Every structure is written in C-alpha cells, then in structure tokens.
Simulated assay, not measured.
Amino acid sequence: MKLADLAVLAGVSTATVSRALAGHSSVNTKTRDRIRALAREHDVRPNQLARNLRMKNTGAIGLVLPLGHARTQHLTDPFFLTLLGFLADLLVERGYDILLSRVIPDADDWLERVVDSGRIDGLLLVGQSDQFAVIERVAQRYRPLVVWGAHRDGQHHLTIGSDNVAGGRMAAERVIAGGRKRLMFVGDPAPPEFADRLAGFAAAAGEAGLACEVLATPMMPEIVHAAVAERLGQGPAPDAIFAASDVAAMSVLRALAEAGIDVPGTTAVVGYDDVTLAAHTSPSLTTIRQDLAIGAGLMVDRLLKRIAGEPAESAIVPPSLIARQSA
C-alpha cells in the first residue's frame, strides 16, 4: 500500500498522511494517531531517507575521532569512551541517530568528504590531532561543526575544551609545593591540547626557577612505557613527572615500579583527564580533571544552535586538581 492509498482510507490528503507519519505539528493529535494506527495496520512505512532528503535533514549527527598524530590509538581509550558516551546519550535524548567513525586522514580533503556526504546534519570532532589547518578550512564554510580541543586566538572553528594551560600549571604547582625540583613532562607535545598542557607546566616551573625536561613520545601505552623505561636507565630519575594523559601516566607508574622507584617517595606522578581508572591505580593517581559531562553538554548545545542557524561560540571548561596518592 502506498501513501496515496492510506490517504483514501483516512479521508485526508497524501500530504497530510506524510506530515502525520513524520510527526509534524501541523496535524492535530487525533488525526495523527488515527493515521499512524492505519499505517501500522496496513504495514505502511514511508521511505525515511527520501523524506529526509526532501526535508534537507538526515536525523543523524557525525561523531568522529581524527587520528592524524596517533594512528594506532583506539576508541577504547578511557578518555574517548567517556566523552563519546556522554555525547551519544545527549544526542539520542534529542532524537538523533549517531554516525561514529575513527578517521585516519589519508588525504587533505578527508573532512570535506565527511561533511559533504549528505549523511549527517552536523559533526562533532573529538580532538584536533594534527589536523588544525584542515578543520579551520572546512569550518569557514560548514557551520554545524563543533570540536573538542584547544582554542587559538582568531580561529574559525568552534571548540569546547579544558583550559589546558591552567591544567598544566596546576600540575606543576602541585609538585613544586611538595618540594620537587627535577620536573619532567611525558607525552606528545605536538597536538594543541598536549602542547598547552606542556606550556602551562613549563611556565610554572620557569617561574619557580626550575627546568622542565621533556620526554617526547607517541601516546600509545606501550610506547610511553618503553620511552620512560629507557630514560630511567640513562640517569637519575626526575622527582616529578607530569604525563599528558592519565593513560600515559599509568604507563609511567608501571615503568617506575619496574625500576624499583617509589611513588611518591622518590618520584611524584600527575596525570590529566581523571578517567575512572585513575582512582584505582597503585598508588592512586593525582590528576587534572576535565569535566566531560559539562563539556559534552556544551558541545551538543552549541552544535544544535549551529544546525538551527543560531549564533554559538567556543567555550572553555575550567580544570580542577584531584589530589590522590601519587603526588
């Protein structure tokens, strides 16, 4: 049975049937319920994709993790899982389907291919990776795009993210207040968020008259572990280590334990993110918390405003120090 046949049964126009099945407010509740009951009885299912194309919306939001700098990283990373979970819950509550993708940029137009696919109404990017310039270019002509990441003066793309510079400062101030003088940063200093964490950490160290050693390493756990183990074998251990993420900090804790170095007696360790596992390491991990529930809410709010054609601006979520046993 076609919509026109259903319209005859219901005694209304085909357009009214179409609007009723789409839940349009222009059809009164009684008529809408009667048409939907007839549709169920006669197994009438309007072509959702065709209707979406006519209405110029898909009912779906893209959720993309771009991996330009860390191609072997997975969605199973606790930080990504937590943020993606919050975002997915909020989008489903608002009636959207989710198109989830882990993208390894293979060409300069990878983001254009995502936003021009016709499959989504808007896009949430989780992280900037090393794709800042690509995101900037696309954001100048594609408005419903919101990014979890760092903000730079004058940038075009809308970001929600932690104040990473302030977070780095908090980490340094914590260990310096504990009398630590040989400070080290562990992580990849290239992505904007990690670069800001290092900048805040190094600035606070410099203001205290202290140097900041940088152990630059890709962020995969096994690689972080190997890099820290190698460094510990080359000379005296630093008495404070700030890792660019909690997952990296857990690899630091493992390497220190294997080298027989006491935490926090000899070396204090601070992470970043406050993932659930941070409270369950041994010793429990002192870290800088990003409030991902607030951040996810801001991302979805700003995206829906952009989809509706309303103004929406970037926002920064203040970080906080979560003091535990490791520092």
Rank of each mutant, 00 (worst) to 15 (best):
G154R: 14
G179I: 08
Q131Y: 01
T159K: 06
F132M: 07
F185T: 00
S129N: 03
V126A: 15
R137K: 12
L145R: 11
F185Q: 02
Q155E: 12
A166Q: 14
G161L: 01
S162L: 15
R169Q: 11
R143A: 14
M170A: 11
G187K: 11
H156F: 09
W148T: 06
N164E: 11
S162F: 01
M170K: 08
M170D: 02
F132Y: 11
V147W: 02
D130A: 10
A177G: 13
F185M: 05
V126E: 00
D163T: 02
G149H: 05
G187Q: 05
V146E: 06
M184A: 14
D130H: 14
T159W: 08
G149I: 08
G149M: 04
G179M: 08
V147K: 07
D130V: 09
I135W: 08
V175K: 02
G168S: 05
M184P: 00
K181W: 00
I176F: 02
M170I: 10
Q140S: 14
V134M: 04
I135P: 00
F185S: 00
R180W: 09
V138F: 07
Q131I: 00
R137H: 09
Q131S: 15
N164R: 03
W148K: 05
R182S: 14
V138M: 10
A171E: 02
M170H: 12
L158E: 07
G127Q: 04
Q155L: 08
L145I: 09
S162H: 01
R143G: 01
E173S: 11
L145W: 09
V186S: 03
A150Y: 01
W148R: 09
T159I: 09
D130F: 14
E173N: 12
V134G: 00
V138L: 09
L145M: 13
G127P: 12
